[in-house]
């Protein structure tokens, strides 16, 4: 039983009178503990796929099962619950809330889980420690470097202990040195048994994953296991 099971997924956008068919029947599954890179040029549909996986968008056709739970016909409240429980997001532009400290940002998904305040703070600190930013807990995002921000974002994604981490171009806004540091962190998290999907268009980043899925014009053109390049070797 896979962590993610996708069958015959279709998605099209209505652009005025034209219909833009972005995903044309995607079939793939992800087993627990995998680290998958989704590659493709812009317009290949990789972001759309990630949005559907992240329940931020809905497919027109096809089925999506996440850890045995069919994701279908969700209203916003239900989708919010599932996102909170099942998924951790890592974005290209970090998307931290700029008036909240690093620790508060990490604690935010826990707040939506209605975890008590004290417990939340402890947990946030624990995850900040894991990404090596415990001393920065009280700092605002504006006081952090890009790499640090992304590490806070990763801590936030981890804090809710989701089943799957979804990373959308996690290194897109970073230089290569920090990119490798972030990838190193992602690899370590994966080593601990977490399932991670990384959307990227950078081949070197993709090579640091265990499996690469190539998307082109809305279909999977290649899906191969690769020998993982350890980011730690470059740091």
């Amino acid at each position: 039983m896979g962590m993610i099971e996708i069958k015959d997924l279709h998605k099209s956008y209505q652009m005025g009178s034209n219909s833009l068919h972005v995903l044309k029947g995607i079939n793939f599954s992800v087993a627990p503990g995998e680290l998958v890179a989704i590659m493709g040029s812009s317009g290949s549909g990789k972001s759309t796929l990630l949005n559907i996986l992240g329940m931020l968008d809905e497919a027109n056709e096809g089925s999506y099962v996440l850890d045995g739970v069919p994701i279908k016909n969700l209203n916003e409240t239900k989708a919010a619950q599932y996102r909170n429980k099942f998924l951790g997001f890592i974005f290209q532009s970090f998307n931290l809330i700029n008036y909240k400290s690093a620790a508060e940002n990490v604690a935010l998904p826990l707040y939506y889980q209605r975890m008590p305040r004290k417990e939340r703070q402890e947990k946030a600190l624990k995850y900040l420690e894991q990404v090596g930013l415990k001393e920065w807990a009280t700092h605002l995002p504006s006081e952090l470097s890009g790499g640090q921000k992304q590490r806070v974002a990763i801590a936030r994604a981890m804090a809710a202990e989701p089943k799957v981490l979804l990373a959308d171009e996690p290194t897109g806004a970073l230089d290569s040195k920090t990119s490798y540091e972030v990838m190193d962190l992602i690899q370590k998290i994966n080593d601990a048994g977490n399932t991670i999907l990384v959307v990227t268009h950078e081949p070197d980043i993709a090579d640091m994953c265990k499996r690469i899925v190539h998307l082109k014009d809305g279909v999977i053109v290649e899906d191969k296991k690769v020998k993982q390049v350890r980011a730690a070797d470059y740091v």
């Binding site: 916003e76 919010a80 809330i97 939506y112 889980q113």
Partner: peptide, 9 residues
């Protein structure tokens, strides 16, 4: 961001 993190409408 909040909604992605699980805030309900």
């Amino acid at each position: 961001i909040r909604r992605a993190l699980g805030a309900s409408p």
